[in-house]
């Protein structure tokens, strides 16, 4: 469920900037896993880490992505293994029907192509099970998976910051 911590040199000078962007609809049960992780993470006040949340990814998120060195998109997932899965994201196009929401790959691609920024990017997919009906709060399974994902992302961010410091000294 983890990923190797990349050690590629950063393109910009100054302190590393990290963005954790949780997205989903908190009014649709486990679909709110992304915003919920963002909320919990923001309470930790990790240095150098910007935390944001949204119903769904949108074009303007490309601007926020372009302003950071490392980006972690956090979303609920209907089929990944419990409790979560972290995977790198590469830019890709995404033809869609009439939808107004974008995939992480598309947002990243827009940052690359329109804004000439190439941050490292990951998706943290947290397994949920209840996406039906309206209602707030997570299922027990999603709550357990959220706790595991929070522990992981906190450690990931610390290690990422540490590896960056070593690379710059």
């Amino acid at each position: 469920m983890g990923v190797p911590i990349p050690t590629a040199p950063r393109l910009r000078s100054g302190p590393m900037r990290v963005l954790v962007l949780g997205y989903g609809n908190p009014g649709r049960r486990d679909d709110g896993l992304g915003p919920r992780l963002a909320e919990e993470l923001s309470h930790m006040g990790l240095p150098g880490v910007d935390v944001d949340s949204a119903y769904q990814l949108q074009a303007e998120d490309a601007a926020a992505v372009a302003d950071h060195d490392v980006v972690v998109f956090v979303d609920a997932d209907v089929s990944c293994p419990d409790p979560f899965e972290m995977r790198p994201v590469l830019p890709a196009g995404e033809p869609r029907f009439s939808t107004h929401s974008l995939a992480p790959e598309t947002v990243l691609s827009m940052a690359w192509k329109y804004l000439e920024a190439k941050p490292e990017a990951y998706v943290l997919a947290i397994r949920g099970e209840d996406f039906d009906g309206f209602g707030e709060g997570l299922s027990d399974r999603a709550q357990r998976n959220l706790s595991a994902a929070l522990g992981f992302i906190e450690k990931f961010l610390e290690e990422r910051a540490s590896s960056c410091e070593k690379a710059s000294t």
Binding site: R28, D30, D77, F131
Partner: peptide, 8 residues
């Protein structure tokens, strides 16, 4: 396209 959009 709103409400629920979970990956997959």
């Amino acid at each position: 396209s709103c409400a629920t959009h979970a990956l997959g």
